[in-house]
Design a protein around this nucleic acid. Sequence first.
DNA 1: TTTGTTCTTTGCGCTAGAGCAAATAGCGGT
DNA 2: ACCGCTATTTGCTCTAGCGCAAAGAACAAA
Lengths: 234, 234
Amino acid sequence: MADRIALPPQLSQIPLFQGLPEPALTDILQHSQARRVEKDSFLFMQGDPADHLYVLMEGRAKLCQVTSEGQQVILKFAAPWEMIGGLAIVGGGIYPVCCMVAEDSRVMSWSTTVLEGLLQRYPLIAINATRWMSNHVKETQQLFTQLATERVEQRLAHTLLRLISQMGQEQAEGMALDITLTRQDLAEMSGTTLFTVSRILNQWEKQGLVEAGRERVRVKSPHGLVVIARDLKL
Amino acid sequence: MADRIALPPQLSQIPLFQGLPEPALTDILQHSQARRVEKDSFLFMQGDPADHLYVLMEGRAKLCQVTSEGQQVILKFAAPWEMIGGLAIVGGGIYPVCCMVAEDSRVMSWSTTVLEGLLQRYPLIAINATRWMSNHVKETQQLFTQLATERVEQRLAHTLLRLISQMGQEQAEGMALDITLTRQDLAEMSGTTLFTVSRILNQWEKQGLVEAGRERVRVKSPHGLVVIARDLKL
DNA sequence: TTTGTTCTTTGCGCTAGAGCAAATAGCGGT
DNA sequence: ACCGCTATTTGCTCTAGCGCAAAGAACAAA
């Protein structure tokens, strides 16, 4: 257990713990575990019993789902202070996704057992959990609808817009993404192939919308991508 | 408010109210409203403030999302005793979908205000809500992954399998669906067009897997569809 | 610097499935 | 029985985007 550690201010910003008084946060912190995890390791695999809730303190992680035929889909990237594995809040489940650490990171975690106690002591957590989950449902439904109705180009634009609004870094010209992001990753987020991603990115680069390097993408004109994503002009 | 109405046994089976003692259920029932709704009316529209939780007592409803370009996607059909609009449990949201009544139905509902009180009195409800939501996330993620990785034929098979396991009626030969279900509906559930659905259904009919009529589908061989859905043979 | 590995680009062929239009069929009302 | 409406079928065309293969580029390690 973490002990005599200063209360990190972000703890109160975690969706699950919002609105809790400071003593509760201290209690929560003391029941957490913290550890480093290195790039390319897994916090959990698809099918594992969902027994831990994680919060990323530093680094990046990606949530993937693999089909029985071995095709992989990336459901989302997680940035610091996002929750991962919220399913563990209610015991007895099985992770439907796996979580791969995308760069050297630090996470804190709570076991289902500990969470049960916390839920008992601070009922607000259950409300927060419901709110977080419902938000999650909403996002996933939106992804589904986009995948069902939009062309690849629009979906890729949406994917990049989502990424920069989530963890883009403001720059002189546009926004940069500091994650290692292969064409394959973008394809798995957008429901397409790395070839198509490569072609579209090159085309956009010629139009001055983005700057694409090896495992790196900078969005020079977010507005231009919005135009494409919404299909405002052809 | 419903008053002096016998406690319907299904009430305790609603995910949100599972595990509650009988007095609580009575309390919940007395705070519910019940009404009839007719085919083709809407319980709520996409964008409306999420202020009511519904449970279908009789009939069918479908949850749709419409894109800015006017394309429609059906996220799911609801059968009796399923919850609709769970987002209303946490106040302040906006329905991300609309709910269309697919045939003359009866619903019971609770306003967000009433739910707040119930949550206060019976904290178990919040836990149940979280569990229900997390299940919802899981299902939606699975839909997303299928849409991203499978061919239309597989997705349509999955759609039909989902429908019959949810509300199919056992018959001498296979399972029947008693809902009015157009090719367009199936297309909007599977991320394709009514033309492609029509073609595939005809092909399956020739193979003796299904029987398709106007706004009607019977699955004669669920197992055959599983083979197609999982792409076990070509 | 060299070598190996991994990621990316690009050309080419191909096909699943979209989209349109016209014909047909089923059903409900009169 | 007839009419009108809506759902469905089916032929045809066409294209977005997949998939392969081969070449090229970026990086890391030795």
